[in-house]
């Protein structure tokens, strides 16, 4: 966290100068007045003002720290020691879990992983402030799953195109269905839609 001290004729001038140097807005900093300064009399006994201006961490950095702390403690209490790392920006907090016993944390069809992600999202957004999305991956599960969904979509679409008959895929959650829809958007010979009710909602591939 950056912090500077500025001396100027008045408090206001010192603050303006400090914000200028930090290239920050007033609501993004913490201001401490170290010396109010005094004008003195006819220039006698005058003292300049001194302020300390500290840049606050952006909200997404605060939320990243909260998310890592929360998930680390949660996994500890689940008796699955693991390391949580992450990054964040204005859009989302991205968390990675690595360790030995990760199968338990992923669960059937990633159900436990989805639940951990959901609970972490709720926990870090409970205090309010700007709402952030939390994406959680455990030992590359999501990355691999996305890859296999894409190739599954391609194979199924090729089949629909050559047979001219519709094909329903296995039920998937919203995030996974989105990956399939996206993947086949560019596929000329087919179109896709979702049918049914969660948790049985599935992507159907239709010939065009």
């Amino acid at each position: 966290m950056r912090s500077i001290e500025v001396v100027a004729r008045t408090v206001d001038e010192a603050i303006t100068e400090a914000l200028d140097k930090l290239q920050a807005e007033r609501e993004d900093v913490e201001i401490t007045i170290l010396d109010e300064g005094t004008k003195g009399f006819l220039g006698l006994g005058s003292r300049q003002a001194k302020v300390k201006v500290e840049q606050k961490a952006p909200i997404y950095e605060v939320k990243l720290e909260a998310a890592i702390a929360f998930l680390t403690e949660l996994l500890g209490r689940m008796d699955v020691p693991a390391t949580v790392t992450g990054t964040s920006d204005e859009e989302s907090v991205e968390l990675q879990v690595s360790g030995d016993d990760l199968g338990i944390l992923i669960g059937r069809r990633g159900q436990t992983l989805d639940s951990l992600q959901y609970i972490t999202t709720l926990a870090v957004n409970r205090q309010g402030g700007q709402w952030v999305r939390v994406n959680l991956d455990i030992g590359d599960y999501r990355a691999k799953r996305e890859e296999s969904l894409r190739s599954l979509a391609q194979r199924a679409a090729t089949k629909v195109e050559s047979s001219g008959r519709r094909l329903a895929l296995d039920p998937m959650n919203a995030a996974e269905r989105r990956i399939v829809h996206q993947e086949l958007q560019e596929f000329a010979g087919v179109q896709t839609q979702s049918e049914g009710q969660d948790p049985y909602r599935r992507v159907v591939i239709l010939p065009k």
Binding site: M78, D79, V80, D101, G107, Q111, T112, S115, Y118
Partner: peptide, 14 residues
């Protein structure tokens, strides 16, 4: 449901 899933996962080990 998410709470139950997480707690059940933790119970698998024990």
């Amino acid at each position: 449901k998410a709470i139950r899933t997480v707690v059940k996962a933790s119970a698998i080990k024990s």
